[in-house]
Structures are given as structure tokens and as C-alpha cells.
Amino acid sequence: MLEGEQRRKAILAQLQTTKQAYSATKFAKELGVSRQVIVGDVALLRAAGENIIATARGYKLASEELAEGFMAKIAVQHDESQTQLELETILSFGAEILDVIVEHDLYGELVGGLYISNEIEMLNFMQKYEKSQARLLSQLTNGIHLHTIRYQKAEDLAQIKQALAEQGILYQDTMDTTVNK
């Protein structure tokens, strides 16, 4: 069993050499400690300035997430039954869904990392959601939420928004703001 500083160096070294997310459970088994010790180690690494993100599949270095392409935030609204449709629609244009963001009355902006870039990751997320009995962040805000997405071509964003609008998922201001003169 490695001591704290050595263990944190091992965690960081592993994250630097893999492109896949690495779970706290896997780290714990390999390093001979509990999962909670790993969670604490990652918190200390983050506090020391390491840009580690937590995804539903494990930890990754954020620098890998800042790949080429364009990034935008899109506002959407739907109930939980449309979650998979929303994710499939965004992915169908080759985009990656980086996070989900909601505005909370007490805490302000809450962000959940998703990092879903393909159908398998999306299905894994949906399966984990269904098994967990957890609530989606969007359920805190009547379904209104944002996603940060990364896409490859400038025109992809308009196509994604159009497809979401056609499904009634894109959040749009429905108030008429025209002024009669």
C-alpha cells in the first residue's frame, strides 16, 4: 500500500497515460485502499491545481476534454421520458455532451459532468440512471437545463438546435416581444 503522496502521484500518472475514464473503485483495488480514500486523494489533487474531472465513468484529465471543435451551451426543456431522445439527437450530429447545468435557488449554478460522446456511453448513462433511482438535475428546474456541447463544424449547432426544436425539446422564449407601433 502506497502512502498518500505516492498514491496521488500514481493516480495522476495513470490519468496522464490513459484516454479512458478511470474509476475510483479501480484505483482503490489497484492501490489497496478504499474508494473513499481515492475520492479524497482526487480532491487533494484538484486543490493542488490538477484539472481532473469526474464523469459518470470515472476520472479524466480535463485537458483531454478541450479537444478541437466548437463549444456552445444550448438551453433545453423536457421531462425525464425524453432524456434519451435529447441525448441521441445531439449525438446524431457527431457532437459530444460535456455537462448538464441547472440554476438552483440556494446554490446557484449546479454542473454535472456527462462527457457523453457516443451511443454506447449514452446507453451506459441511461442504464446507470435507471438503476440508481437518482433524480436528474433537470428535475429540480421543471426540466429546464443547459448542456455544454462540443461539435466539429460551425453549421452543426444550427442543425442540432433545429432537430431539438422539432422534437419540442429546445427551450425557446415563447413570449411575443414585438412592439406594435
Score class of each variant (00 low, 15 high):
Val111Asp: 01
Val102Lys: 02
Ile101Lys: 07
Leu91Cys: 08
Gly113Ala: 14
Ala43Trp: 03
Asp105Gln: 09
Glu119Ser: 14
Ala72Cys: 03
Glu86Gly: 00
Tyr171Cys: 02
Leu110Glu: 01
Arg8Lys: 15
Gln167Thr: 01
Lys128His: 12
Glu119Ala: 14
His104Asp: 11
Val37Gln: 14
Leu114Gln: 04
Ile38Ala: 07
Gln14Asn: 07
Leu85Ile: 09
Gln172Ala: 09
His78Met: 03
Val33Lys: 10
Val100Tyr: 01
Asp176His: 04
Gln36Glu: 13
Glu121Trp: 08
Ser132Asn: 10
Glu96Gly: 03
Leu91Trp: 07
Thr25Arg: 13
Leu45Asn: 07
Asp156Ala: 07
His104Arg: 01
Asp105Tyr: 03
Asn124Ser: 11
Ile97Tyr: 03
Glu121Asn: 04
Asp79Pro: 02
Ala67Cys: 05
Ala21Phe: 06
Arg7His: 07
Glu50Tyr: 07
Leu106Ala: 03
Gln16His: 10
Ala72Trp: 03
Phe70Asn: 15
Gln152Ser: 13
Ala21Gln: 03
Thr148Glu: 15
Ser23Asn: 02
Glu166Val: 00
Glu109Ala: 09
Lys73Glu: 11
Glu30Met: 04
Ala134Glu: 09
Leu45Trp: 11
Ala28His: 05
Gly112Tyr: 01
Lys128Gly: 10
Asp79Gln: 09
Ile52Ser: 08
Leu15Tyr: 05
Asp173Gly: 05
Thr18Asp: 13
Ile169Ser: 12
Phe125Ala: 15
Gly4Phe: 07
Leu61Arg: 11
Leu164Arg: 13
Glu86Ser: 12
Arg135Lys: 15
Ile144Ala: 12
Asn142Gln: 12
Thr89Pro: 03
Arg8His: 09
Leu106Val: 08
Leu31Arg: 08
Leu85Gly: 00
Gln127Lys: 15
Leu85Asp: 14
Gln82Thr: 08
Leu2Cys: 08
Asn142Met: 06
Ala56Lys: 11
Tyr115Asn: 14
Ser63Gln: 14
Val179Asn: 04
Asn118Trp: 06
Ala13Tyr: 12
Ala67Tyr: 13
Leu114Glu: 00
Lys131Ile: 00
Tyr115Cys: 09
Gln152Thr: 07
Ser81Leu: 11
Leu136Trp: 07
Met122Pro: 00
His104Cys: 02
Ile144Gln: 13
Gln82His: 14
Glu166Ala: 13
Glu30His: 10
Ile116Trp: 05
Gly32Phe: 05
Gly40Val: 01
Asp105Leu: 05
Glu50Gly: 04
Ala47Tyr: 05
Ser92Ala: 13
Leu140Arg: 08
Arg8Val: 06
Glu166Trp: 04
Met122Phe: 00
Glu50Val: 05
Ser63Asn: 14
Arg35Cys: 04
Leu44Thr: 10
Asn124Met: 06
Val100Met: 10
Gln6Val: 03
Gly108Ser: 02
Val100His: 02
Ala67Ile: 11
Leu87Lys: 14
Leu140His: 09
Ser81Cys: 05
Ile144Glu: 02
Leu31Asn: 08
Leu123Lys: 15
Ile53Met: 12
Leu87Asn: 04
Glu68Ala: 11
Glu80Gly: 02
Ala48Asp: 15
Leu45Asp: 06
Gln36Asn: 11
Lys29Pro: 00
